[in-house]
C-alpha cells in the first residue's frame, strides 16, 4: 500500500447511472477509512461534479466509451482525477472556467460571482459551469486540467483544512 489510506482507480462506462454509483462508492470509502461524515460529502460532491462533466462534455462519438476515475487520499488531502476523451472546444471552455475562478481573490468570491451571473442570465443559455466553481469553493479544491492525445485529465486536489466551514 502506498502512503495513501485509500486509492480508487476505475475504468467506467460513460453512463449517467454510473455517476451516482461512483459518488456513493467514494463516499463510503471515505467513511470506511476516516469515519469523517463532513469530508465524505465534500469528496463525493467533487467526484460527482467531475464525473458528470466527463459524461456530459466528453467526446463519446468514437470507439472510446469509458472514462477513468482515480481517487486517492490520506488524512491531509485527497485527489480526484477524471480522464475522458474530449474535443478541443470543450477544453478551451474548461480552461477558461478554471482561469476565471483563479482570477478571483478567493473561491468564495468566484462562487458568489457565478451565482449572480446565473441569476442574471436569460433562460436557456447553455451550461452554467457552476459545478467546477462548487468544486473549488465548497470542496476547497485547486483545479488543474491537461490534455494528452485528445484525453482530458481534470484533477481536483482537496486539502482538508481548506474546506469552508458552515
Amino acid at each position: 500500500m502506498s502512503a495513501f489510506n485509500f486509492s480508487i482507480d476505475l475504468p467506467v462506462r460513460s453512463e449517467w447511472k454510473n455517476i451516482d454509483l461512483l459518488r456513493t462508492s467514494v463516499q463510503n470509502c471515505f467513511i470506511a477509512v476516516f469515519s469523517d461524515q463532513d469530508g465524505c460529502h465534500a469528496i463525493s460532491m467533487i467526484t460527482g461534479e467531475l464525473v458528470e462533466n466527463a459524461v456530459k462534455y466528453g467526446d463519446w462519438g468514437g470507439d472510446q466509451k469509458s472514462f477513468r476515475l482515480r481517487v486517492s487520499g490520506d488524512s491531509d488531502r485527497a485527489t480526484v482525477t477524471v480522464e475522458n476523451p474530449v474535443n478541443p472546444d470543450e477544453v478551451r471552455e474548461l480552461t477558461r472556467t478554471i482561469d476565471w475562478i483563479e482570477a478571483f481573490d478567493s473561491t468564495e468570491d468566484a462562487y458568489r460571482a457565478k451565482l449572480l451571473e446565473i441569476a442574471n442570465r436569460p433562460p436557456g443559455q447553455g451550461s452554467s459551469k457552476l459545478g467546477l466553481v462548487r468544486v473549488a469553493y465548497e470542496g476547497g479544491c485547486t483545479l488543474r486540467a491537461e490534455v494528452t492525445r485528445e484525453v482530458l485529465r481534470v484533477t481536483a486536489t482537496m486539502r482538508f483544512e481548506e474546506r469552508p466551514t458552515r
Binding site: S2, F4, F6, S7, I8, C29, A32, S35
Partner: peptide, 9 residues
C-alpha cells in the same frame, strides 16, 4: 488492475 485499496481501522 487495482480498483480499490482501503486501509481500515
Amino acid at each position: 488492475q487495482i480498483l480499490l485499496e482501503l486501509v481500515i481501522r
